[in-house]
């Protein structure tokens, strides 16, 4: 039986991972941490409110004796929050998480970290495909990349100091899908898709469903190490726009961040790390995870198509996901009241 701790329960990924795990009878206990209340309806996951850098974490780990930590609370979209908050969540949060997980007598035996391919950077001298071993070619410039580098440093230190723990780091390519909102999905939803004049970089995508499946896959198969997660194939950005049925609008190569400022005012910001990608793109080699037995359900182009279909549906019937509001008393009642008949325990 597994006892799982999920960080970032209120984020897109934390909620989906918790939901998938609830369906599994071999998972005994699921504890979700976040600063905000969960946004998906969960049956048996216990939500604990923390501050963004998890100061109470070591107490929780000790009290609940979790054996698995799924660290999904890493922000890789700079448009979501201020730089300072992102630093607190990504760097300080991870530091405290691993400090708690590595305490003497810790029960943690398995850790999965949801990192990102932003760690590889993007530059003209880069190889077409990054394998897990190829280091980035230039020092990180964007905030996201800088904080990810610090995070991966902590993960590596933890893995070296705790050889008895299976530490898995998954580096995800650009995620697209029916539900997730990122800088890329916002750019593709605009009436005309922005590109940099004179550049047509190749992009790689991974479907949000494959993201969840890969997290569960590495947990299930005890696969320590670093794995790239991305769909097959690289698409030129103009082809991505074409798949979306949109035309492109060229932005100036220099100072593109100023021309996209009006998008911030209408609530469709495009992050600096995304603009950097629009110049040289990036490809990551997904073969290591495939060799471990994982099978993708979507290629890069298939992912874009799934996104487009959902975008068309949304533009016709509006948002399709039911809105859910976390009510503390209701959730407590269903989980702990003796009046509720619980089949799982018998």
């Amino acid at each position: 039986m597994r006892r799982v701790l999920i960080t970032g329960l209120a984020t897109f990924w934390g909620g989906l991972v918790a939901k998938a795990m609830e369906a599994d009878p071999t998972v005994d206990v699921i504890i979700g941490l976040d600063t905000r209340e969960p946004e998906v309806e969960l049956e048996r996951t216990e939500y604990v409110r923390t501050d963004e850098n998890y100061s109470i974490l070591s107490r929780i780990v000790k009290a609940t004796q979790v054996d698995t930590i799924v660290h999904t609370f890493l922000v890789v979209d700079s448009t979501q929050m201020r730089a300072k908050t992102m630093h607190e969540i990504n760097v300080i949060g991870t530091m405290n998480l691993f400090a708690a997980a590595g305490a003497t007598g810790s029960s943690v035996r398995e850790v999965v970290v949801k990192s990102s391919s932003y760690i590889y950077g993007t530059a003209k001298q880069d190889p077409v495909w990054f394998t897990e071993e190829i280091p980035r070619s230039h020092p990180p410039k964007e905030r996201v990349e800088r904080s990810l580098e610090a995070v991966e440093g902590y993960v590596r230190d933890f893995a070296v100091d705790n050889p008895h723990v299976n530490v898995t780091m998954l580096r995800f390519s650009n995620v697209l899908g029916p539900d997730i909102v990122t800088s890329i999905s916002r750019a593709l939803e605009l009436p005309m898709v922005p590109k940099l004049a004179g550049f047509d970089p190749r992009f790689q995508f991974v479907h949000e469903e494959d993201v969840i499946r890969s997290i569960l896959f590495v947990l299930d198969n005890h696969l320590p190490g670093i794995y790239n997660v991305a769909g097959d194939g690289l698409l030129p950005w103009t082809e991505v726009a074409k798949l979306c049925g949109k035309r492109t609008v060229p932005l100036p190569t220099y100072g593109a961040q100023y021309t996209t400022l009006p998008l911030n005012w209408i609530g469709k910001p495009i992050g600096e790390e995304m603009l950097a990608l629009l110049k040289f793109g990036r490809g990551i080699d997904n073969r290591r995870l495939k060799e471990a037995g994982f099978q993708y359900n979507y290629t890069s182009a298939g992912t874009v198509k799934a996104f487009v279909e959902a975008m068309r549906l949304r533009s016709t019937v509006g948002t399709t996901t039911p809105t859910y509001r976390y009510e503390r008393d209701v959730e407590q009642f269903f989980r702990h009241s003796p009046a509720v008949v619980r089949e799982l325990e018998n």
Partner: peptide
């Protein structure tokens, strides 16, 4: 093989 709805013949090398 997975459905791969490509719209150009640009290969992985560009």
């Amino acid at each position: 093989p997975l459905h791969d709805p490509r719209m150009s013949d640009v290969d992985e090398w560009g």
